[in-house]
C-alpha cells in the first residue's frame, strides 16, 4: 500500500483581515468496504479517513467528517481569515484511530 502522506498548502504570508484558502490532501486509498480485491476476490475491509481537523494556534477552526463516499486521497479546501501570525495543525483520523498530522506556519503582516 502506498504510504499515507499528508500534503497541505497554506500561504506563507497574508495581510491582516485577508481571507486565505487552505488546501489539504492526504494520500489514502479510502477503502469503502464494498470493493473487492481483484486477485483474491475477497472484500477489502472498510478503512477510511473519517475525520479531518484543522486548528490554528491550538484552537480548532474547521472539522470535516468523511464518509466512504469521499474519494480516495481526500482533498479538502476551506477559507480562513488571517488575523495574526501563527501555526496551523492539521490532523487526519483513520478508522481504527490512527492519526496523521501536518503543520504549517503563516505570517500575518
Amino acid at each position: 500500500m502506498a504510504k499515507i502522506k499528508p500534503r497541505v498548502k497554506v500561504p506563507k504570508s497574508a495581510a491582516a483581515g485577508e481571507i486565505v484558502e487552505i488546501k489539504a490532501l492526504i494520500s489514502h486509498p479510502m477503502h469503502t468496504g464494498r470493493a473487492k480485491d481483484k486477485k483474491t476476490g475477497k472484500k477489502i475491509p472498510r478503512k477510511i479517513i473519517n475525520k479531518f481537523v484543522a486548528s490554528f494556534d491550538g484552537q480548532d477552526v474547521f472539522t470535516a467528517n468523511f464518509e466512504p463516499a469521499v474519494s480516495a486521497n481526500p482533498y479538502i479546501a476551506f477559507p480562513f481569515k488571517a488575523s495574526k501570525s501563527g501555526a496551523f495543525t492539521f490532523k487526519w483520523v483513520e478508522d481504527g484511530g490512527a492519526e496523521f498530522t501536518a503543520s504549517k506556519k503563516m505570517t500575518v503582516a
Binding site: A64, A69, V70, A77
Partner: peptide, 19 residues
Amino acid sequence: ASFNFTPTMGACSASTRMR
C-alpha cells in the same frame, strides 16, 4: 461528508471530492 465551521474562518465555503 459533513463540515463544522467556526466564526474565525471569516467565510463559509469548502471543496472536496466524492464518489
